[in-house]
Design a protein around this nucleic acid. Sequence first.
DNA 1: GTCTATAATGAGATAGAC
DNA 2: GTCTATCTCATTATAGAC
Lengths: 189, 189
Amino acid sequence: MSKKDPQALVKQAALQLFSEQGYFNTSVPDLVKASGVSTGSIYHHFGDKEGVARALFDSVVERMQVAIEEIQQKHLSVPEQCKAIIELLFVITENEPDLMRYMLHAKHAEFLSDVAPICSSSPFKKMRSIVSMGMKTKEVHEMDETVAAAAVFGGAIRLVQMRLDGVIEKNLLSYVDEVWFCAWRSVAI
Amino acid sequence: MSKKDPQALVKQAALQLFSEQGYFNTSVPDLVKASGVSTGSIYHHFGDKEGVARALFDSVVERMQVAIEEIQQKHLSVPEQCKAIIELLFVITENEPDLMRYMLHAKHAEFLSDVAPICSSSPFKKMRSIVSMGMKTKEVHEMDETVAAAAVFGGAIRLVQMRLDGVIEKNLLSYVDEVWFCAWRSVAI
DNA sequence: GTCTATAATGAGATAGAC
DNA sequence: GTCTATCTCATTATAGAC
């Protein structure tokens, strides 16, 4: 039944096309062909092409946020939460590269004019707040919160970007332990 | 006289327009207005619009590569070289944000079809090779070269991206010491 | 709500004088 | 090498039947 909801069909097609060929290289007729939904219906539901990108972005961020919240509930210690997030980033990159690509590039892809940059969207805020918690519990060196979050997750995000760009051939999950080792050492007391 | 070279004028205008509004939101007539060079002349020199982006990208990477080579010659120790590169990234971000933005986003901006991803271009290769040298001199933990490079520079690059996105308000140079502290601890023996 | 057919715009690219 | 004027065409978006 989710297969018959035109909004879902369009977003699904858009995720693939936008992330593989880019937003500007994807025309509305392309979306029509890939989704099986008509031009009129797309405009009726999303207003314009940017509306599709916007709705898709909201879905993607929402999805990511839920995954991070699950981690925050399961894992108690700060380092465990951080490691779980790195693993999550890697798993999503491997299993749903289009989703990860869209989330990371959407802001820089020159559309979605007035959406806040991804780094200030809620999943990334959560990452910062976890690291910040680590400072309160004296597990993480006292320092600027943003710098600490960048230190912990920057390496992993960099690897994700390289993997999505095809620079890294191997499955990212094989690097989890090494990456985590570096990430935690960079800020741990 | 550099002000009269049409190629330089076009690239200069393109750097600003592409990085501020994006490649696809910049038309050739926009380039004509901003550069003062005519349509015919632009097509004569660059072939097509993508040719402008390509030539600009080459200039930017070349420029970055020269800066990193200078560092490799001046600073002898591996950690000093790494720190100098982080400082370089921050200085360029502060002084020439358009240049840094273009270098980081060009590949993901959905054009420049067959250019290698930025992470495999020569400045980034040089970063990896410096870290790799650190392993030989036993200053850096033995581990995957790519992971180590991501650990050392990932945090800094993340901060650069956030600064360019307007998420960070303060001058990045004020973070150099903290960033360097984290970066080096993450891989140092 | 969904569809087909169509309009209107503005883009990339070219022609050809100078 | 540089310029102006122009062509061609794909794109976004709308109209209006069902």
